[in-house]
Design a protein around this nucleic acid. Structure first.
Length: 741
DNA sequence: GTGCCTCGAGTTCC
DNA sequence: CTCGAGGCAC
């Protein structure tokens, strides 16, 4: 997932609904959406520039564009072509470089990201959900929700411009999906044209599914024709939609329920339920079991009602979705990193199945964690055949959580046991229970290895840690290869054509080996210099895909500082930490200078100014800071990083989209009692507008928002000459920017 | 010190 | 997707 993208989309969601912006496709953002004439001219111009640059680069060895410029132009072209599928052309340079391997579908960037939902399993999770919303909003009045069945199909995003369907995309990673426009052309539930009352731009979301009756008939036809049958309606729907030959899709009985929207040029209504009614007026099929509820008890009653009807619906559902009905409250609640705060999916209990535990294997992850995996006799659970299940860690096998509490009543798992499996969240297979009476008499307790099965190094478990880790570091081939996979993963370098499989292959390749990240960027050079076994002559590569791969690698020499930090795979430094550090330090040299100024001896760090600055970053604590220093001050690690850096053009993190927000870049501190906003809401709102929210007042503070009961912070503010506002003044200050649909 | 809220790191199957 | 735990508010 491109993390920055997702976060910025989430935080900007409300504005997008006003039609003022288009965060999901930054490369095409300044483009007049309604004007396909302009698009056609721009696409033609960009194609010729990019094609010329490709030739200059690959044949003349004299690039006339910088990597960053080339990358930007190409991305803009891809975005435009995605937006205007009718202008796409096999002759476009993107047709050769842009498409993913073994995949005939183009990509479409969602104007507003398609997020996932938080899950609830128990009644308690539902009451918690409601309570959390009330507390976030400081709201005691009537709080209404919509409750509707959660269809078990594939989510789809349909884009209508001037009331005509222009594109259809799968969810993909949430930010970018696959273009299936041709495939949905024959789905009867999807209108091609919207009525005159619909807004100019509608990005509509819903679920493609197959009914039980149609599924049974399709499988019967498939069996008769000697074709493979589908395991369940969901797979059948997915398989049908993703046919490269759209005429096959047309012959499959797919259906569609509309239930949500992304970008809109005008709001549909003031409530979720009102908007759904509008969608029905537009000609979409909406679910008849959608109901407005006013309390957790109401929600749970409707859940029970739907669960009772489940078997008779004629299509698969896997739960009930609850959404805050008032759209202005939805906007205030906003988003966490990957899920909205205003919705939750209440899942039905998972299906269970008994099977045989055949073996316990150990995998080694990029941080050296030894993770046990259960090998199972294949068994069907929830329509899917499961043969592996995660076992988490050694405590989990032993029958206790790492906090020492018993799980499975303290019964351990042994090879040879009968175990009960389920798919957590209908995805990840897990072991729920073990049948002790059926345990073979000779079954032995599992002995967790104390050395790494991959490299033989000692595997230690630190106090308070739940996992045992290989101490081999980069000596361990498993760690080295996993680190490389992480380096090229989504959200990191994300190099097209260089995924986990290719990394695995290159890692073990004697001639063109990739052992460190720097090796990726010298691959083309080493290939050119190598007298034998050039990549293009190997099986599975050839001239085009080799050129494609080298071009994809080159395109990534220009990399955002945030992505680079994340890509290094430093423990505790994920996407968010990468972004925090990038925004704070701005450039690579600034970050290095700061880290190098901190003493190597942990004992001496406390008094150091750079250490103080680092750990003062909101979200960066001592654990992360120490982990960063462990990596950068380790000579081997540092040498590998320095060797990488010379191949890159490190870009500053993208400017925050704050649209001239009055508080962008300011540091704000809240103190005292806030009466109109809760603390959490005030903080989220300030951050949405580009402000940094700090906990204490210092010379760097710009604004102190003081409610009644403010104490020492008010005095600090006076001392430092910090602007002090009361809550009303703060709300007035940010008001113009928080008007929501 | 305790209790949220997120984030990070692990995993499966198609 | 889930679990553990880091970071911070109370």
């Amino acid at each position: 997932m491109p993390p920055k993208l997702l976060i910025s989309i989430g935080r900007q969601g409300a504005k997008v609904q006003n039609g003022t912006n288009d965060q999901g496709a930054p490369d095409a953002a300044n483009f007049d959406l309604a004007n396909a004439e302009d698009a056609s001219a721009q696409i033609a111009r960009l194609r010729s520039i990019v094609a010329a640059a490709n030739i200059a680069y690959h044949q003349n060895d004299a690039p006339d564009l910088s990597d960053a410029e080339y990358d930007a132009l190409k991305r803009r072209l891809i975005a435009l072509e995605a937006r205007y599928p009718e202008l796409a052309s096999a002759a476009s340079p993107t047709a050769q470089v842009g498409a993913a391997p073994n995949d005939g579908f183009g990509k479409i960037t969602h104007a507003v990201a398609m997020l996932s939902l938080e899950n609830a399993f128990a009644a308690e999770d539902v009451t918690d959900f409601e309570a959390r919303i009330r507390s976030f909003l400081s709201f005691g009045g009537d709080l209404a929700f919509t409750a509707e069945p959660k269809i078990d199909g594939l989510s789809l995003s349909l884009r209508y411009e001037n009331r005509r369907l222009v594109s259809a995309a799968t969810r993909g990673d949430g930010a970018v999906g696959e273009n299936v426009t041709a495939n949905v052309a024959h789905i009867a539930d999807i209108p091609q044209i919207l009525p005159a009352q619909a807004p100019d731009l509608v990005e509509l979301r819903g679920e493609v599914y197959m009914s039980h009756a149609d599924f049974a008939a399709l499988n019967a036809r498939q069996a008769q024709a000697g074709e493979k049958t589908f395991a369940n309606p969901r797979n059948a729907a997915a398989g049908s939609l993703r046919q490269l030959d759209a005429s096959i899709t047309a012959a499959r009985p797919l259906r569609f329920f509309a239930y949500a929207w992304g970008a809109l040029s005008a709001p549909l209504a003031g409530t979720q339920s009102g908007a759904i009614e509008k969608l029905a007026e537009f000609g979409f099929v909406t679910n008849a079991l959608t109901k407005i509820c006013h309390s957790p008890d109401d929600l749970l009653a409707h859940y029970a009602q739907i669960e009772m009807q489940r078997a008779d619906l004629g299509y698969d559902i896997d739960g009930v979705v609850y959404k805050v009905n008032d759209l202005s409250l939805q906007a205030r609640l906003g988003f966490r990193a990957t899920t909205p705060r205003w919705a939750i999916a209440h899942k039905f209990p998972a299906e269970l199945a008994w099977t045989h535990l055949l073996a316990i294997d150990i995998q080694v992850g990029r941080t050296g964690a030894l993770s046990p995996v259960a090998r199972l006799a294949p068994v069907t659970v929830g329509g899917v055949v499961v043969s592996n299940a995660t076992l988490h860690n050694e405590d989990y096998i032993a029958g206790r959580s790492s906090r020492g509490e018993p799980i499975r009543d303290g019964r351990d798992l042994r090879v040879g046991d009968w175990v009960q499996v389920y798919r957590a969240g209908d995805v990840i297979p897990k072991i729920n229970d073990v049948d002790l009476p059926r345990r073979p008499a000779d079954a032995m307790p599992y002995q967790f290895p104390e050395t790494c099965p991959e490299c033989g190094s000692p595997a230690h478990r630190e106090a308070g840690d739940s996992v045992r880790r290989c101490t081999g570091g980069l000596i361990c081939p498993a760690q080295a290869v996993e680190r490389l996979k992480h380096f090229v993963a989504r959200g990191a370098f994300d190099i097209e054509g260089l995924g986990a499989k290719q990394i695995e292959m290159f890692f073990h390749d004697p001639l063109l080996s990739i052992k460190t990240p720097a090796d990726i960027f010298t691959l083309a050079q080493r290939d050119a210099a190598s007298p034998l076994q050039k990549l293009k002559n190997r099986e599975g590569f050839g001239e085009t895909s080799t050129a494609k791969l080298f071009a994809a690698i080159d395109a990534r020499r220009a990399i955002g500082l945030d992505r680079l930090i994340f890509a290094l795979g430093i423990r505790h430094a994920g996407e968010v930490a990468g972004s925090l550090l990038a925004y704070h330090y701005g450039t690579w040299p600034a970050l290095m200078t700061a880290l190098d100024a901190i003493p190597a001896d942990p004992e001496l760090r406390a008094g150091n100014a750079e250490w103080a600055e680092l750990t003062a970053i909101d979200g960066v604590g001592a654990v992360l800071a120490n982990s960063l220093l462990d990596t950068f001050q380790n000579p081997t690690e540092r040498a590998a990083i320095d060797a990488l850096i010379v191949h890159l053009h490190i870009q500053p993190p993208p400017a925050r989209q704050t649209d001239g927000s009055p508080v962008a870049g300011k540091t704000v501190v809240f103190t005292g009692t806030l009466e109109k906003l809760s603390r959490a809401e005030a903080k989220a709102q300030a951050e949405r507008l580009g402000a940094k929210v700090a906990g204490s007042v210092s010379a760097k503070t710009d604004i102190l928002v003081a409610g009644p009961g403010a104490g020492s912070k008010l005095k600090d503010a006076e001392k430092h000459g910090v602007q002090v506002l009361d809550e009303d003044a703060w709300i007035a200050l940010i008001a113009p920017k928080t008007t929501l649909p």
